[in-house]
Nucleic acid binder design. Structure first.
Lengths: 121, 121
DNA sequence: TCAGAAATGAAAATGATTTTCATTTTCACC
DNA sequence: GGTGAAAATGAAAATCATTTTCATTTCTGA
């Protein structure tokens, strides 16, 4: 675990959720922790290999990362105004585990998002 | 639904599973159905809008598409080999409805996906 | 201190996807 | 059949995340 990886980890901690490589890079630039974009990618790859972070893809295909083992939540998003509400969902966690083990999957993760039009809109 | 979209649909039918835009393009070139890559992308986008096809991302970020049945389902995806299993989930449907109505949302939709490493990998 | 290894980052390369724009096709109407 | 506006097409250029290259800098351990 070298210096760059620690900086990237620091950002992911502060963010407390998902961030893309580009976002991590931007955030480091804003602070006085600037490291090169290439190094950000390398650090993320290395953290992935060490299973310290977790990765997903946004709808647009951009990869996003977060610290493993953070308790995660889901989102309820308004399609119109963008308001986002965090929701906990034990039901979902259990469902994902159950489905995965039914089919012999391991190292399981999941995503779930609800979207609609909120009261105000 | 125009001619290009029909050709793309034809390929997806023959493939009987997921294919990327680039793959659809290649397959059309091999047959005597050649259409431009741009048109393939446009046709896929249009089919997506019409909810005739379904999309996912490969690990490398490439988008893959397939015909979707009319019944709504979720996916269990192997991060390693890409194997995809369709799963039904009444629990999720109910959860989404419940959460949304709790917060006064309407016109509700949702996404949910489970990913992990399958038995074979 | 010194040499070799590892880390770094700027710039170029890659590859999927999107945009641009000039051309072609379709289609309703005369 | 002929006409023209609207839609479809595709080649080429642009975009953008990510990876590779490679010359330079920093570590590390003897």
């Amino acid at each position: 675990m070298n210096k760059s990886e620690l900086k990237v980890l620091g950002v992911l901690e502060r963010v407390g959720g998902f961030a893309s490589a580009q976002e991590v890079y931007q955030l480091l630039q804003r602070g006085n922790q600037s490291i090169g974009l290439t190094t950000v990618y390398r650090a993320l790859q290395s953290l992935l290999d060490d299973k310290v972070v977790d990765t997903l893809r946004r709808d647009d295909g951009e990869a996003i990362y977060r610290l493993c083992g953070e308790n995660h939540h889901h989102h309820l998003v308004c399609k119109s105004c963008g308001t986002t509400i965090e929701i906990q969902a034990n039901a979902i966690e259990k469902w994902a585990q159950q489905m995965a083990s039914d089919h012999g999957f391991r190292e399981v993760g999941h995503t779930a998002e609800i979207f609609g039009i909120c009261k105000k809109c």
